[in-house]
Design a protein around this nucleic acid. Sequence first.
DNA 1: TTGTACGCGTTATCAG
DNA 2: CTGATAACGCGTACAA
Lengths: 355, 355
Amino acid sequence: MRQSPRFLQMQTGWNAVSIDLKQLSARLGLSQTTVSRALNGYTDVSAKTRERVAQMAQELGYQPNSAARRLARGQADAVGIVYPLEAGDLGDPNFLFVVEGMSERLEAEDMDLLIASARSHAELRTYDRLLRGGRVDGVIVARTQVEDARIDYLRTAGFPFVAYGRTGRCDDFSWFDFDNEAGGAMAVRELVRLGHRDIACVLAPQHLNFAAQRRAGFLRALSEAGLPVRAEAVIETGLSRRAGYEAAQCLLALSPRPTAIFVDDNLCGIGVVRALLDQRVEIGRDISVIVYDGVPPDTLLVGQSVAAIEQPTAHEAGRTLADMLLRVIRQPDAPPQQVLRQPVFVGGSSVGPAP
Amino acid sequence: MRQSPRFLQMQTGWNAVSIDLKQLSARLGLSQTTVSRALNGYTDVSAKTRERVAQMAQELGYQPNSAARRLARGQADAVGIVYPLEAGDLGDPNFLFVVEGMSERLEAEDMDLLIASARSHAELRTYDRLLRGGRVDGVIVARTQVEDARIDYLRTAGFPFVAYGRTGRCDDFSWFDFDNEAGGAMAVRELVRLGHRDIACVLAPQHLNFAAQRRAGFLRALSEAGLPVRAEAVIETGLSRRAGYEAAQCLLALSPRPTAIFVDDNLCGIGVVRALLDQRVEIGRDISVIVYDGVPPDTLLVGQSVAAIEQPTAHEAGRTLADMLLRVIRQPDAPPQQVLRQPVFVGGSSVGPAP
DNA sequence: TTGTACGCGTTATCAG
DNA sequence: CTGATAACGCGTACAA
């Protein structure tokens, strides 16, 4: 009914190439036990033996079978990253670099990185499969929400994870995040410094935690500057260029027209900038614009650039995330680690003194 | 020296939640054998038993331990994708969607997708680790080169793989690709149809297979149109915006100035368009431009758009790649499968009649 | 310092 | 149709 594993291996002609612990120890005239211990850095092996073993293993290209090892040790030696891909969502322009950073760090530990995309509603099923199947020792949760069912799930399950982004309540788990509230406030302060007193704002959906935080920062800085909040100039919309475009049209129709716009994400940012160009608004003179994560330098007219709040270290973020997750896995009782990186303001021709 | 696996599991408090095959069969009053067979769709189980087992398994949320299963069956139930990330390389704008497509297809088979980025020179080591460790049953090779050491390695090892892209010689292995030569030719023909007779070309590094093919298509179509090749108007450069920018500057300095430019990749494309804008060249009138994979609609001036050769089906490409790899894994003796998708021409304001 | 013997959780063989 | 029993390849108490 089914071919035996051994036969399958013969047929593919592949596993024949690979060397066994049994074969390796036979070649060395040692027991598997000794060889295994030598390879795994146990102290109770004579230096000479260890040397010989290492040499031979290297020479024969021995790689322990990962399934067997995992079974014996009860660990998966792998972590997962589940990212919710909504239609057209490349919202985090640096995501691939984060993945690369993680990948590098994990490779150094001989661990695998499983990637599972999931349409957002099916996501919990994906987690379930990963955890219950013992496929991973821990997971990274990306794109956190203010109320995040995935994180609740992981916490009640007691499963090791690190969040890439915070949630509404996040005191008691490990996360890595950029200080979105500071970023939002920073943008406002830059604009206030230039004399703007009527600052509009385009925001991503507020169930996304980063968006809620940036909004909070925006409001706080306004208040600190003694400026009123103009409700109709604070637009919560979708996470897309089109949404940004439409939001900007609304803002331009207001009277009096705001003198500056803070956009909390780069997708909307592109749309906003396009709308302004279409309306022949002179960016940086008629209206100032700051966009979180920036927009591609090509979006604007020649010689112009968009001021941005930036999170410059995607690659390092990936390494750090991996580090944190390893720690959560290996020291489950250690207190949670929480890393907050500061975004930086990068100026551009899109900001200027209030008209 | 090391905690026993069981203790570790107790300590993390996690695996306690998960249910065992042993426990499951105990609950059912059946042998592990029978339960296993019922779950794996063997025919020699009574319908009633199968029903009971399925029900109970569902109820208790049983998930087979993947390490044990892999060990027993001698398969990894996982595939890998290794993509070389050079500095700033997001060359394939659709890569994430390809990954998503693969991920979906593999999830349906209960297989994992391992992602391993690798600085290009260390790539072979990465492969080695994946293959020898029995971590994967097969791999996807992305970003193929004309002479591709990775593919040579896999072929001599006899390891199942599918290439995402072809190589110089690719008769005897499975690959999925878009018809880059046709795409290159298509671009030229569109331009010729509009009366252009002096067509320049900006190309990515020619060791990348797609770039070599697009170049070939470009040259073939020129020749078919009876047009000469102007050597100084065929620029091979890097894979970046900056490279494209500089290439365009060179082309603008030529005399006579070419009336059209074909750019074989979207990164260079952005740079080229920017250079033209900077030089106040009216795109679509003074010079026509076609860019492979297109450029973001925001790169140009308002109301304009860049004509493109597009590969519209990234998600489907991912599914197909996964399908093909599954087939290579499961039917190693079947003849290689080779899938060539046609790109399509998408017009835009960046092309117009020759001046 | 080394070797023996067993367990990890599942699937496959073979006899009922 | 079902159930003992033996792998799968490695890690590790325990004994020597």
